[in-house]
């Protein structure tokens, strides 16, 4: 289990991570989203023992990570910017990993190399961006880690490879009860693999929740009546968003779906649709309740990306 308590990391005057507290259970796949500079990579570097926390604590199975080889031996971390020895091929990198990680599994390395159809004798410099990512994933998975941290690792992978990687991660989670943290800009990327999600914004953990819970506890209602009405009509129904357009109102309702449907039917509407929410919609509305504007956060992210281009 990974446990962060009041975790803070600063770079000179810039606070990259501010008072973050979270718990990531063993065997889970934990997704972390947020705009550029939100602190995702910093969090992963802290949890991989690259950085020392400035304040707070960070433990894996109740052991600190920083300068703790016993814990780090069980971690594989794939950074957003990959590192390979100059001019090395995958076999040479495997040798490097084998000299560093005592659990490095040469057979698995060979098996995965074949599965990804990569030539381990070719210089990695000659690989495409996506192939380099695959190489890094193969090396990381060959270490048989209990904890796997992927920092925007799926970027640059084609859908087939992305699914392959996802299935490999899921397999490790199921077979070895491995714990995985995946960061990404894209909620859609994480939706189908993660069982927990969190949102980081400007160094703070804004939201953290079980993904099933997120998806099921809220739903969208579209309703219409013959007579005129306003939001007060639904005061007994817990909702976080209400919008009326003509005679049709839409709202996001929290709570039990069947109970809510029964209550709404009792009002005799001429139109009643109860729809599931996408994860992005869930985040948007949850953030609104917390006083954040998720769209704005994403806009900031887009602007950052444009600037970087």
């Amino acid at each position: 289990m990974i446990k962060a308590e009041h975790l803070t990391k600063k770079f000179h005057n810039f606070t990259a991570l501010n008072d973050v507290t979270c718990t990531i259970p063993k065997g889970s796949i934990y997704g972390m989203v947020g705009s550029n500079g939100a602190g995702k990579s910093t969090f992963l570097r802290l949890i991989s023992g690259v950085y020392r926390p400035d304040a707070g604590s960070l433990t894996i199975d109740d052991q600190p990570v920083y300068e703790n080889p016993a814990v780090k031996e069980r971690i594989s971390y794939i950074a957003d910017t990959l590192y390979f020895l100059p001019g090395a091929n995958m076999n040479r990198m495997a040798k490097l990993y084998a000299s560093i990680y005592s659990r490095f599994d040469q057979k698995r390395f060979q098996k995965l190399t074949e599965a990804f159809e990569l030539d381990p004798t070719l210089s990695i410099n000659s690989f495409s961006k996506g192939m380099k990512r695959q190489a890094a994933i193969i090396l990381a998975l060959s270490c048989r880690p209990d904890y796997m941290f992927f920092d925007e690792t799926f970027d640059g992978l084609d859908p087939v490879m992305r699914n392959l990687v996802k299935s490999l991660i899921c397999k490790d989670v199921l077979e070895y009860n491995a714990t995985t943290i995946i960061t990404s800009h894209s909620l859609r990327e994480l939706e189908d693999i993660c069982d927990q999600l969190s949102l980081l914004h400007k160094g703070g953990l804004v939201l953290q929740s079980d993904i099933e819970n997120l998806k099921t506890r809220q739903f969208k209602v579209q309703i219409a009546f013959r007579e005129d009405y306003d939001e007060n009509l639904f005061r007994d129904i817990p909702h976080i968003h209400f919008k009326k357009s003509g005679s049709v109102a839409s709202m996001i309702v929290s709570g039990d779906r069947d109970v809510t449907a029964a209550k709404l039917h009792s009002l005799s509407p001429v139109l009643l649709d109860i729809l599931p929410l996408t994860l992005e919609e869930v985040f948007t509305y949850e953030m609104e309740t917390l006083g954040y504007n998720f769209d704005k956060i994403l806009e900031e992210q887009d602007e950052d990306e444009k600037e970087s281009i």
């Binding site: 023992g49 080889p69 814990v71 560093i100």
Partner: peptide, 15 residues
């Protein structure tokens, strides 16, 4: 180099 530094600081050995 940042990425190389991160790699070597993440490996399971003390500094």
């Amino acid at each position: 180099k940042r990425e190389e530094s991160d790699f070597y600081h993440a490996i399971p050995q003390t500094r």
